[in-house]
Structure formats: C-alpha cells, structure tokens
Design a protein around this nucleic acid. Structure first.
Length: 373
DNA sequence: CCGTCCCGCCATCGA
DNA sequence: TCGATGGCGGGACGG
C-alpha cells in the first residue's frame, strides 16, 4: 500500500535498509509518543499508518497488543480510542483477577494445563478488560479472538501476574501457553508472536530482557507498570534497548531487500525525513553491574533516544566540556534541523530537542554532584 | 549458525 | 462482493 518511502541515506545519498528501525518496538514507541502527546484521542488506523510510515498491517499489531493492556480501545471500524497509560493499571488488575479466576497460577509449577482461550464460560460478559465503555465492541468476535494476538498478549501478561515467575524465556512461555499437544511448528509460530509482544512491551518498559541466570538463555522479566513514579510522559518511553535507531519517527524506509532492491523513490511521498544522528552501540558503554535491582529506569543504564550525546559515557568529563558540547550540539542540531513539512513531525522534533537539552543538563548536574561525593 | 522478527500473502469476517 | 482485519510462516537480518 504505502509505496511512498523516505529512507535513510548515507552522506553520499545511498540508501540502505535497516531492520532495526522497523521493529515493532520502535513503531510502538513512536505510536505511543504520537498519541500521548495529547490532543487527539481518536485514532484512525489509516492515519496512524500514514503518520508513522508503516503499513496498515503493522498498526494492527501494535494496536492489538496495546489494546490488551488498555492503552487503546476499539471504537469502531478503523478507529480506536486512546485511553492512555492511565488505563494500564486497571487493565492489569483486571487481567490478574481474571487470571486467578481461571486458575492461571497453575502454570508456574505445572505446565500441563493448557491455557486455552477463555471463551467458554466467559459468556456475554465480554472478556475485555476495560469495564466502562466497550459498548461499541461487538460481542461477536470472541471466536476470532481465540487465537488472536490480543488474547495471546493477555495470557502472556497473566503468566507473570498470576504466578511468581519473575523471568521467563519465550520458549517456555510458548510451551505453557500452548499446552500439551503442540508440535514444533506451532511452537515456532507462537514464539514469533511472543517476540512481537515482547518487543512492544519492552518499548513500554513493561518487561525487560535479561538472561536467565542458569541457562544463559534470553528471558524476559516483568517490570510492570510503575504507577506512582509520576505520570508517564512520552519521554519516559524508552528507546528499545536492543534496537537503538537514529532517525525517524516515521518508518518510511527501504524495504527489506528481496532480490529487487530497486530504490523506491516514489514521488508522492510525504516528508523526506532526514537522518539526524546515528547512535552506535550505546549499550556497551553503559555501566553494567546491575543484575538484580529492577527499579524501572535504574535497572538499566540510561537509555538514549535518537539524540544521544556523543561520548556521554565518559562520565568523568568536566562540566565545562559538557557545556561546550551542548553548544556544539545545539549548533549541530540547528544545522541539521530537518525540514519537516508535517506539523506533527516538526512538533515532535522540537519536543525531542527540548527533552534532550533538559536531559543533558540533568546529566551534567548529576555528574557534578557525583564528583563532589 | 541460530535467535530474532520483518514482511506481506491470503483466509476470514462483516457490512 | 469488497474492504477491514489479522493469522501465519518464509526467510532476511544480525550477533
């Protein structure tokens, strides 16, 4: 559908495809940022797809996942309602309750029980987690929901909420959620979906990727929603840990090479969003030794968005240096200020710049106090 | 090599 | 019949 593509290019103008920038997690971050910035609470799928520069199909993915934790709610065909992050705690409560009612906790210890769709005895009391206004949601789609991403997501969440597992590998989760009679194909498929979900959740800081202490295998730990750590602003939305990207809130980009990598310089594209600054492997530079405390932000090293300050890891830099670097970067930012045609993008960029500035100052201050002590 | 997961085909649904 | 929805898995990417 969307064949208009704006893409990244290197200084020579060559285009390249970057998978990282197209992940669901990134898309989700952008999505949340877009609608969290206030104003609109009605989300048109086409509109979202257009603004974020992705195919409609991908919007379904994020929206379905977000819906299952209450952030959005389906309103009508093609339209969702933005409920915001405030809706998360209640949704999680609902899931937890429902999970216990359904004896979900049994899974933690015994994986033989199959987590089926909860259609059966759910009856007409739609199993949607939101109490208030799901009036517009038809009661019909339960059958379709059976295998849906929506339900899988909820079950995945329940896995954490209704048991004392603190960490789970996706393989395990898939096995648990599939129950007994699963073949390897089903497993593969399920795991793929769980990766999708995990990406979205990671980008919201609902879960965090770690490694299982014993098996060394990648696993996910539930962080939950930090209710009272202040309202979640768009700035709190973390850039995905693994998938740092450097550009664009819109995902217009090269398609993955499939033999034909013909550059799709379509003319009716919207804004050409230029590359700003590409961050590189920031993770490496973060301090590690944080194995166990999992307070939301502190459990990880600082996560930088697109405008990661160069060399920020050298915590011993003098404040002067920082200040002058701020100036440098401001100059740089000015030089490379993208010419967005789209007001939203333009606003967001401004937002970024502001956020970045204040963040940088904060770091500078912290560093100062650190040195004192 | 293998874990990750993008991408889009196409089945299904609902009007 | 047709547009909306979204399951599904091939195979690309990247560590």
């Amino acid at each position: 559908m969307s064949s208009f593509v704006s893409r990244e290019s290197d200084p020579n103008g060559r285009q390249f495809y970057c998978r990282k920038e197209k992940s669901l997690g990134v898309l989700c971050t952008n999505f949340l940022r877009l609608y969290d910035s206030g104003g609109v609470d009605s989300i048109g799928l086409d509109d979202a797809a257009a603004r974020l520069g992705v195919e409609r199909r991908r919007i379904y993915d994020v929206v379905n996942i977000l819906e299952s934790v209450g952030v959005v709610a389906r309103k009508q065909k093609n339209r969702y309602l933005w409920k915001g992050f405030e809706a998360i705690p209640r949704a999680l409560e609902g899931l937890k309750e429902e999970g216990f009612r359904k004896n979900f906790s049994a899974f933690a210890s015994c994986n033989s029980a199959k987590v089926t769709n909860e259609n059966e005895n759910e009856g007409s009391s739609s199993s949607k987690t939101e109490g208030q206004d799901n009036s517009s949601v038809t009661s019909k789609p339960e059958n379709k929901r059976e295998k849906s991403l929506w339900l899988l997501t909820q079950n995945f969440v329940k896995l954490f909420l209704c048991s004392d597992v603190d960490m789970i590998t996706l393989d395990n989760a898939a096995a648990l959620l599939l129950g007994d009679g699963h073949n390897s194909t089903a497993m593969r498929t399920k795991v793929r979906r769980l990766y999708d979900i995990a990406n979205v959740f990671s980008s919201m800081n609902l879960i965090e990727k770690t490694h299982h202490p014993d098996s060394r295998k990648p696993a996910f730990r539930w962080l939950g929603w930090r209710g009272n750590n202040g309202p979640v602003t768009s700035l709190d939305l973390k850039q995905p840990n693994k998938r740092i990207f450097g550009t664009d809130i819109s995902n217009y980009n090269m398609k993955r090479n499939k033999g034909d990598s013909s550059i799709d310089w379509n003319s009716n594209q919207k804004e050409n969003v230029p590359v700003i600054i590409r961050c590189k492997d920031l993770e490496n530079d973060c301090n590690e030794n944080k194995p166990d405390q999992h307070t939301k932000h502190s459990s990880k090293c600082v996560e930088f968005g697109p405008f990661t300050p160069v060399g920020v890891q050298t915590v011993s830099d003098s404040k002067n240096k920082i200040v002058s670097r701020i100036q440098d970067l401001e100059r740089l930012a000015f030089t490379y200020h993208p010419q967005y045609n789209n007001q939203v993008l333009s606003d967001l960029f401004g937002h970024y710049v502001e956020a970045w500035k204040s963040w940088y100052v904060e770091v500078a201050m912290k560093e100062k106090t650190q040195k004192r002590s």
